[in-house]
């Protein structure tokens, strides 16, 4: 069996907030018991509603955020308990790309200076690899003398991807990395990810909310709802034959070319039970058992897992 590049097991994150000095304590379960693998040369998409915990999962996987519980395994090595000092050595292998490229490009430095920093970390001091990487992301060599402000948003995003690639990562976490790009540049960047996966065996955790984009780029897709990973499957299986009612609702809400707006989903029938399935209050397939516990992810088909008690359900996809 080949080891996964990234393997997370039972990851949880709970935020505790106190209202005022003596006020009630409020717990936010941002991520609950999430487990998945990203294989070598695989792109795993992660979708779900805003606030469902996608970014929190990505940051915990990179150990940029401490998990409340759970394990993070990078290429077979458990890094959950690594100190910051030990992490520094492995951090180069995982790179994060944000929605806003400005976050990773210092505005006062030239692109040349920005791109030479990762190479210096690897003890290399010629520009050969930089020029190759620039070509790979479709940027010309004269970019090197310019500062980030002289590029459009899409070009800046490609430069921040180039910077990440120069670290020679095994894993990229792309958090809404193409969301702000126009369709032409978005297409270029999406093609680039697929190309790098094929040519360099790069692994990517691709977080996004445009289902069409995620559907194009990902080998498999996971769906999150209120901190829970509710379904994971090969992309086509998930989109065409979803098994979790939330996935089906999400797909139905997505806008389509030339199609009218989808109708409003029926309003909630029951109030949310703290114990039960996270989706119970909005679920058209809910039974009384659904209110008693949160189902675990379980195998419902080949490479297809769903966290729904009603494992017999086959729902309509796109």
């Amino acid at each position: 069996m080949t080891t996964a590049v990234l393997s997370v097991r039972g990851l949880s994150k709970t935020y505790v907030q106190r209202k005022g000095l003596l006020g009630a304590v409020k717990e936010t379960h941002a991520v609950r018991n999430v487990s998945f693998d990203v294989g070598r040369g695989e792109i795993l998409g992660l979708v779900g509603e805003s606030g469902s915990g996608k970014t929190t999962v990505g940051r915990m996987a990179m150990r940029l955020l401490e998990a409340t519980s759970g394990q993070v395994v990078l290429s077979g090595t458990d890094i959950t308990a690594y100190s910051q000092a030990r992490l520094r050595a492995v951090r180069r292998k995982m790179q994060l790309i944000f929605q806003d490229p400005s976050a990773s490009l210092n505005p006062r430095q030239t692109i040349g200076r920005i791109l030479r920093t990762p190479l210096a970390l690897r003890g290399i001091d010629n520009d050969q690899e930089i020029l190759e990487t620039l070509a790979l992301v479709g940027m010309s060599p004269d970019s090197l003398n310019r500062t980030p402000a002289m590029f459009s948003g899409g070009q800046r995003q490609r430069l921040s991807i180039a910077r990440a690639l120069l670290m020679q990562p095994e894993l990229l976490v792309a958090d809404e990395a193409v969301s702000a790009l126009d369709v032409c540049v978005q297409a270029q960047v999406v093609n680039l990810f697929v190309d790098l996966r094929d040519r360099l065996g790069l692994s990517v955790l691709f977080i996004g909310h445009d289902l069409a984009v995620v559907g194009v780029v990902s080998d498999r897709v996971g769906v999150m709802y209120r901190g829970v990973l509710v379904e994971v499957a090969r992309t086509a299986d998930l989109f065409r034959r979803p098994r979790h009612p939330y996935t089906a609702q999400l797909l139905a809400a997505a806008p389509r070319h030339g199609a009218p707006l989808p109708p409003e989903p029926a309003p909630s029938q029951v109030s949310r039970a703290a114990e039960g399935c996270v989706f119970a209050s909005l679920c058209a397939h809910m039974t009384s058992e659904c209110l008693s516990r949160q189902p675990d992810l379980s195998e419902v088909g080949p490479a297809h897992q769903s966290a729904c008690l009603r494992t017999e359900l086959h729902l309509g996809g796109v």
Binding site: I43, V190, V194, A212, G215, A236
Partner: peptide
């Protein structure tokens, strides 16, 4: 523009 109807499961080329 990617289309939801044309899910390509990682083999997409736009």
């Amino acid at each position: 523009a990617p289309r939801l109807e044309a899910v390509m499961g990682g083999y997409g080329h736009l």
